[in-house]
Nucleic acid binder design. Sequence first.
DNA 1: GCCGTTTTCGGCCCGACTGTTTTCAGTCG
Length: 585
Amino acid sequence: MSSFTPEPMNNSQIAAVLDQVADLLEFQAANPFRVRAYRNAARLLHDLAEPVTAILADTQRKLSDLPGIGRDLADKIAELVETGELPQLNELLAAVPPSVLTLLRIPGLGPKKAAALHAQLGVSTLDELRAACEAGRVRELKGFGTKTEQAILANMQFATTAQSRMYWADADQIVLALREHFAGCPGIAQLEFAGSYRRGKETVGDLDVLAVSSTPAQVMDCLATFAPVVDVLARGETKMSVRTHHGLQIDLRVVEARSFGAALQYFTGSKDHNVILRGLARQRGLKINEYGVFRVADQSEEYVAGATEQEVYGALDLPAFPPELREARQEFEWARQNSLPQLVEVSDIRGDLHVHTDDTDGRASLEEMVQAAQQRGLSYLAITDHSQRVSMARGLNADRLLAQWARIDRLNEQLRGFSVLKGIECDILERGGMDLPDEILAQADWVNASIHYGQRQSRQQITERILQAVEHPYVTAIAHPTGRLINRREAYDVDLDAVIKAAGEHGKCLELNASPQRLDLDDVQCAAAKARGVMLVLSTDAHGPEGFDDLRYGVLQARRGGLTRSDIVNTHSWPQLKTLLQMMK
DNA sequence: GCCGTTTTCGGCCCGACTGTTTTCAGTCG
């Protein structure tokens, strides 16, 4: 009775398989460059704007045209998509129990040590490893000792409590506090935060701090007294690592002024971006490390640059890439063609098109939200409260919505140089269709359509519901198009590529929701939408006045997606945007 | 496993810190 056909693998799933192969190969002490090839391919596919299946279906193109995918990997990926399986992975899994990979999650335990534990003590789970440590068997192994054994026991908790990465917004709070703390420390000439925090990633795994000082020990002493710090993990001449009570690791590096730019570049990463950069340097007889750019000759090395990032990149005739773009995606290609996008900035945003009030689940009144928007320099605001289906939020039925719109009309009469738009966040019902009648929606200035219920429906159902909304004449935008909540809830199973394509065809906007737990669409999805010419709308989904401050999180995500102001509709004034919407129809 | 205005073989980014070492391997970023 089953007419079930398996869903084609999406790029993320293919990437996950390749990453798993890399993990297992690494465990087997395979050639590290071979491991890297798998990891590079996984990252490439994960970041790819179009589905791999589309390339495979296109006779004009080959997977091996992609940089980093050769014949071998192209064949393997094709087989994986075709059959849903990769024989190589099955062989690896037969040789290595997958549970040993959990050993690698223990900080300080890498593939070599984990393999030794597995081979010599027969350890393949965390519980077995704990028992071996407690029995004193680990310290007996060559290359291990009592300190290693103790460290494994102490760090085991970090492998079991599935450490989730911190929201960027939360990391930002710690950064602010740490900046203030360091301001009271003598001997610091320059200070900057690097790493994924500086690149604006939606989550941050650890914090990298960089300081210029002639007295590194003093700076390290200072970090040790930062109130949240509970543990010093390592401390050397120039480098120190600590852990805070949040479970966040902070890495401090102290350098000389002439190395500050090089160190900032180096520790901002990404790792893959740096690998490419150094390869380019090498081609020119240069070497880049965290101390500077050096010309390599016979036995000597001559310092060429390093005080600023501009100098470092300039030594290779490259622009100082915005940190958000340093992900080894397209940035080097863009630089080569002199076509780096001029990334959108917070000040480009003129209005907010997804906002709630206390008529539903917001915490402030219509008037208070308008005032807050004005104070932040916006010139328009769409009030988009929930529709009736969202009963928990006291969603609006047609009567209450019309009453709210009447209040908006009266409010607008009093306002100068500011427009309040009549909007709604209208639910896409479980059975399909919109939660309010067409004759009501027809009167709105802005209609966000979104899914809150039936999130666990099949891919086909969810996709069909959203496509219907895209095609609906009065819908302006799809809000939080994937429904994911970072670290908390997976995206619903939606064929986003089909949604993007339809949005392009019907002139509808897709939202980039700036709430730090959502950031939905993500950076890669934004880039995919842009590639299809789909307009994005960057909205805060504010539920109170402070919610407007989330805008900068969305802007960071947009920048990571390579978006410029012309890719985002609410960089226009409301009259311009209204005209644009008419033209897109 | 990938890649090629030196190349189809021999490279593939680079350094700090720790622990277990008598000179370095492993891990991390």
